[in-house]
Nucleic acid binder design. Sequence first.
DNA 1: TTATTATATGAACACTCGTTCATATGTTGT
DNA 2: ACAACATATGAACGAGTGTTCATATAATAA
Lengths: 121, 121
Amino acid sequence: MGQEEIQCCEENLVHTGAVRRVRELLPPDERLYDLAELFKIFGDSTRVKILYALLEGELCVCDIASLMEVTQSAVSHQLRVLKNSKLVKFRREGKTVYYSLADSHVIQILDQGMEHVLEPV
Amino acid sequence: MGQEEIQCCEENLVHTGAVRRVRELLPPDERLYDLAELFKIFGDSTRVKILYALLEGELCVCDIASLMEVTQSAVSHQLRVLKNSKLVKFRREGKTVYYSLADSHVIQILDQGMEHVLEPV
DNA sequence: TTATTATATGAACACTCGTTCATATGTTGT
DNA sequence: ACAACATATGAACGAGTGTTCATATAATAA
């Protein structure tokens, strides 16, 4: 991790005010950590693809596996991750389990990210 | 990676329509991959903290290092990652390099994520 | 009950990634 | 030129993560 005081540019004396102000405005470390954990979930192409697929409505596990072209096991593992992060929910119907998006934040986060990706250089 | 055809539930015959429809609506794999790459950048607490700090305005490298309580080297490595993803930009002033947010998408993505994190269970 | 199907889970391996350390680059001042 | 400072970069190590394989659980049907 870090260290008590960092040997730094002398000019830091000039920026001390800015640094102190920013430090006070920063969300608590724990919240920033949670936020990073959330984005980590979106940081895998299989999971992103699953989420995009569920935009159109609920799908069962094997449907998703078929779409992703990966193992049922892999999909199941990933669905568990998404479930733990409250990004998807599920309902059981006999032997089949149907997954769907948990709330609208998912859509908005995906959209914002896609906007950035699609932006011209 | 995947495999040609996945042995799957017979009921898949029922869902074939849904799967085919979703498949057509899905963004191309390459775009989904880029999107995941973008979110991967946000999926690290040091980087998220840096981005949040830059919300208040530009900061030099050693200011950021001081805020993060990590090495200057670590910050520099992370800034390069952020720079490569077009999330931050920089300007040089003598020996000092000032970093700032590249565009407003960053803010919106952070906000959407934070909303989800802060949501009551 | 047993057999079959759909999904979940545990272990292990390969790979990725963030940090640290050492060093290089670039800028200013002497 | 050289020294001092701010930042960047390369190598390497350790921690974390996604997949596969094998197996377990759950539900339906006979």
